[in-house]
Protein backbone atom coordinates (compact mmCIF):
# COMPACT_ATOMS: atom_id res chain seq x y z
CA UNK A 1 0.00 0.00 0.00
CA UNK A 2 1.28 3.42 -0.87
CA UNK A 3 1.99 5.31 2.33
CA UNK A 4 1.94 8.67 0.59
CA UNK A 5 -1.44 7.97 -0.89
CA UNK A 6 -2.74 6.79 2.45
CA UNK A 7 -1.55 10.03 4.06
CA UNK A 8 -3.40 12.09 1.45
CA UNK A 9 -6.58 10.11 1.97
CA UNK A 10 -6.42 10.31 5.76
CA UNK A 11 -5.86 14.06 5.37
CA UNK A 12 -9.11 14.27 3.42
CA UNK A 13 -10.87 12.40 6.21
CA UNK A 14 -9.49 14.67 8.93
CA UNK A 15 -10.58 17.72 6.96
CA UNK A 16 -14.18 16.52 7.13
CA UNK A 17 -14.01 15.45 10.77
CA UNK A 18 -11.26 17.44 12.49
CA UNK A 19 -11.74 15.59 15.76
CA UNK A 20 -10.22 12.43 14.24
CA UNK A 21 -6.70 11.60 15.39
CA UNK A 22 -4.95 10.12 12.32
CA UNK A 23 -3.25 7.62 14.62
CA UNK A 24 -6.65 6.12 15.45
CA UNK A 25 -7.70 5.37 11.89
CA UNK A 26 -8.24 1.65 11.25
CA UNK A 27 -7.72 0.94 7.58
CA UNK A 28 -10.08 -2.00 7.18
CA UNK A 29 -13.15 -0.62 8.92
CA UNK A 30 -15.68 1.46 6.96
CA UNK A 31 -14.95 5.11 7.75
CA UNK A 32 -18.61 6.08 8.02
CA UNK A 33 -19.18 3.65 10.86
CA UNK A 34 -15.78 4.15 12.42
CA UNK A 35 -16.19 7.90 12.75
CA UNK A 36 -19.94 8.44 12.70
CA UNK A 37 -19.95 10.21 9.33
CA UNK A 38 -23.23 10.71 7.52
CA UNK A 39 -23.65 10.49 3.75
CA UNK A 40 -23.05 14.23 3.43
CA UNK A 41 -19.71 13.89 5.24
CA UNK A 42 -18.83 10.92 3.07
CA UNK A 43 -19.40 12.97 -0.09
CA UNK A 44 -17.24 15.74 1.35
CA UNK A 45 -14.55 13.13 2.11
CA UNK A 46 -14.63 11.91 -1.50
CA UNK A 47 -14.37 15.50 -2.70
CA UNK A 48 -11.27 15.89 -0.53
CA UNK A 49 -9.83 12.70 -1.98
CA UNK A 50 -10.48 13.97 -5.51
CA UNK A 51 -8.86 17.32 -4.75
CA UNK A 52 -5.75 15.68 -3.33
CA UNK A 53 -5.27 12.76 -5.70
CA UNK A 54 -6.97 13.88 -8.89
CA UNK A 55 -9.16 10.77 -8.87
CA UNK A 56 -12.94 11.26 -8.93
CA UNK A 57 -14.69 8.27 -7.50
CA UNK A 58 -17.94 7.47 -9.35
CA UNK A 59 -21.05 6.65 -7.39
CA UNK A 60 -21.04 3.01 -8.51
CA UNK A 61 -17.65 2.59 -6.77
CA UNK A 62 -18.77 3.90 -3.36
CA UNK A 63 -18.78 0.35 -2.01
CA UNK A 64 -15.14 -0.10 -3.01
CA UNK A 65 -13.95 2.96 -1.14
CA UNK A 66 -15.80 2.69 2.14
CA UNK A 67 -12.56 1.81 3.96
CA UNK A 68 -9.24 3.64 3.86
CA UNK A 69 -7.58 0.50 2.48
CA UNK A 70 -10.21 0.19 -0.25
CA UNK A 71 -9.87 3.86 -1.09
CA UNK A 72 -6.07 3.62 -1.41
CA UNK A 73 -6.39 0.56 -3.66
CA UNK A 74 -9.04 2.21 -5.83
CA UNK A 75 -7.13 5.47 -6.26
CA UNK A 76 -3.84 3.68 -6.96
CA UNK A 77 -5.52 1.53 -9.62
CA UNK A 78 -7.25 4.52 -11.20
CA UNK A 79 -3.97 6.43 -11.38
CA UNK A 80 -2.08 3.60 -13.06
CA UNK A 81 -4.90 2.84 -15.46
Amino acid sequence: MSDDLRTLIVDALVEVAPEIDPADVRDDEPVQEQFDLDSMDFLAFLEGVAARTGVEIPERAYRDVETIAGCVTYVAAARSA
Partner: peptide, 15 residues
Protein backbone atom coordinates in the same frame (compact mmCIF):
# COMPACT_ATOMS: atom_id res chain seq x y z
CA UNK B 1 -30.52 9.78 -8.95
CA UNK B 2 -28.08 7.05 -10.05
CA UNK B 3 -28.46 7.94 -13.71
CA UNK B 4 -27.94 11.63 -13.05
CA UNK B 5 -24.94 11.11 -10.81
CA UNK B 6 -23.13 9.04 -13.47
CA UNK B 7 -22.43 12.19 -15.45
CA UNK B 8 -21.87 14.57 -12.59
CA UNK B 9 -18.75 15.60 -10.70
CA UNK B 10 -18.82 14.96 -6.96
CA UNK B 11 -19.96 18.40 -5.79
CA UNK B 12 -23.10 18.18 -7.92
CA UNK B 13 -24.20 14.68 -7.07
CA UNK B 14 -27.56 14.19 -5.46
CA UNK B 15 -28.60 11.81 -2.74
Amino acid sequence: VTRRNEDLPLPQRLT
